[in-house]
Simulated assay, not measured.
Amino acid sequence: MTFIKIQNVVMNSSCVAAIKLNNQTVLGEKSVSVPLATPQFSLFQWDTIAQNLYHYKWIEFTGQAVITLQDYFTSFNNVIDLLPQYQESSVV
């Protein structure tokens, strides 16, 4: 479990459901959108769990946070890219 702090928001990385890196606000400003998944049930409701277990809350970042989040979520140290945009050539 990792915590990510951007401005005054601290996110638990295990709650991050997805990242939209290249979004735009209504005004055309660059933004990054992050949906956070939080359980919808209390600890006492384990026997009556519904199909929809999580509630998603979208958080949108603009300004300097966009650059920081794009750098973090495109870093090879933090995210595995299954379809890289470039192919490494090997010399045999």
Results as ranks from 00 to 15, higher is better:
residue 18 A to H: 03
residue 46 W to R: 15
residue 6 I to T: 08
residue 4 I to M: 07
residue 18 A to Y: 05
residue 71 D to K: 14
residue 13 S to M: 11
residue 61 F to R: 10
residue 50 A to P: 00
residue 16 V to G: 01
residue 60 E to W: 07
residue 73 F to S: 07
residue 7 Q to K: 14
residue 39 P to Y: 08
residue 60 E to M: 13
residue 38 T to Y: 07
residue 66 V to Y: 10
residue 75 S to C: 02
residue 56 Y to G: 03
residue 19 I to G: 03
residue 76 F to N: 11
residue 73 F to P: 09
residue 3 F to T: 12
residue 31 S to W: 03
residue 37 A to Y: 08
residue 20 K to G: 13
residue 23 N to H: 12
residue 52 N to M: 09
residue 78 N to S: 06
residue 50 A to L: 10
residue 61 F to M: 05
residue 6 I to G: 03
residue 4 I to W: 11
residue 72 Y to F: 11
residue 75 S to P: 05
residue 74 T to K: 08
residue 54 Y to L: 14
residue 8 N to V: 04
residue 57 K to Y: 11
residue 4 I to D: 01
residue 38 T to N: 06
residue 61 F to T: 07
residue 81 D to G: 01
residue 23 N to P: 01
residue 46 W to C: 04
residue 75 S to I: 05
residue 8 N to K: 08
residue 86 Y to G: 00
residue 42 S to H: 02
residue 66 V to H: 12
residue 42 S to G: 14
residue 48 T to Y: 11
residue 3 F to A: 06
residue 78 N to L: 05
residue 29 E to F: 00
residue 79 V to G: 00
residue 6 I to E: 03
residue 3 F to E: 13
residue 31 S to E: 06
residue 21 L to W: 08
residue 25 T to E: 04
residue 6 I to Q: 05
residue 22 N to R: 12
residue 18 A to C: 05
residue 3 F to G: 02
residue 11 M to D: 02
residue 83 L to T: 15
residue 76 F to K: 14
residue 1 M to T: 08
residue 35 P to M: 01
residue 64 Q to Y: 00
residue 57 K to C: 07
residue 49 I to Q: 14
residue 46 W to F: 09
residue 54 Y to K: 07
residue 19 I to R: 02
residue 86 Y to K: 15
residue 46 W to Y: 09
residue 60 E to L: 04
residue 64 Q to E: 08
residue 10 V to W: 03
residue 10 V to R: 03
residue 32 V to G: 03
residue 60 E to A: 07
residue 58 W to F: 09
residue 65 A to E: 04
residue 19 I to N: 00
residue 23 N to M: 12
residue 18 A to W: 02
residue 50 A to H: 03
residue 19 I to T: 05
residue 42 S to V: 00
residue 48 T to Q: 14
residue 14 S to I: 04
residue 37 A to E: 08
residue 28 G to L: 09
residue 89 S to H: 15
residue 23 N to G: 15
residue 15 C to I: 00
residue 65 A to P: 05
residue 64 Q to A: 11
residue 27 L to T: 13
residue 74 T to V: 07
residue 3 F to L: 13
residue 35 P to N: 01
residue 67 I to D: 09
residue 66 V to Q: 07
residue 47 D to Y: 10
residue 3 F to N: 08
residue 7 Q to Y: 13
residue 10 V to Q: 02
residue 74 T to W: 01
residue 22 N to T: 06
residue 49 I to K: 14
residue 76 F to P: 11
residue 42 S to F: 01
residue 17 A to E: 13
residue 31 S to P: 03
residue 26 V to A: 09
residue 42 S to P: 01
residue 52 N to H: 09
residue 4 I to G: 01
residue 62 T to Q: 12
residue 8 N to C: 01
residue 69 L to M: 04
residue 27 L to E: 14
residue 11 M to P: 03
residue 68 T to N: 07
residue 36 L to Y: 02
